[in-house]
Design a protein around this nucleic acid. Structure first.
Lengths: 110, 110
DNA sequence: TTTCCTGATGGTCAATATACCAACAGACCA
DNA sequence: TGGTCTGTTGGTATATTGACCATCAGGAAA
């Protein structure tokens, strides 16, 4: 059985992924190292907000950064992270099947 | 590229995992269906707190519940979730290697 | 030097998450 | 009918998160 301390460390990593913007950043960096400006361009968010999201991912060890000329380059350190999304998708599909959530439209009132 | 809507749905699942107690519950239920009382016994937490954690996991579709006699039985619906922990462990080990965190003891002051 | 350009940091505020205790609800037993 | 066992729900207090704006810091260009 996993200890509470182990669970806390793990949840630190998972918390870092638990935000839509950060998931999008992870997906985006899967294609390779990108400059901050490209990541920023994905969102309608303040620069500071995007910077902080990247800081969270960096703090968790999921991405790394390195200065390159005027740009700050961000790299996904642990690509296996994205393998997990397959399972998350399985959860979502299972939920849809069980009609716990519906992505298409409301069910007609009975 | 993943859409914002997809990212929001995914992050809902991941948020549900992003708590030490809920990670421990997931690990625990990997061994099979268990009654509430067993899950409760893992923690020094109020009954209501454990019940709410289970509700979060259930809401995300990660576990399901079913009444069995006097007990409420909880089942892990998506065992692939735990495969992910291998990657999380890889992140942690990478962090340790890079000395971003240290599980053993403080480095001597230089 | 002064002026950009790039991105990080600090402050603040609203929303969310998480814990506890207390009270409740359903099933079964006395 | 009341008591007990099981787990859930409601209320509340506190901590954390995430957004914005404003400001700052470092390097390149004028």
């Amino acid at each position: 059985m996993i200890t509470l301390q182990q669970a806390e460390i793990r949840s630190g990593i998972i918390k870092a992924m638990a935000h839509p913007a950060r998931l999008m950043i992870i997906e985006y960096l899967k294609a390779g190292t990108k400059p901050f400006s490209d990541v920023f361009g994905l969102f309608n968010l303040d620069k500071s907000t995007v910077s902080k999201h990247l800081l969270v991912l960096k703090g968790a060890g999921i991405v790394s950064s390195r200065k390159e000329g005027p740009d700050m380059m961000y790299t996904l350190e642990v690509p296996c992270i994205t393998d997990f999304f397959g399972c998350v998708t399985a959860v979502i599909e299972n939920n849809v099947r069980r009609q716990q959530i519906c992505l298409c439209q409301e069910r007609p009132a009975k």
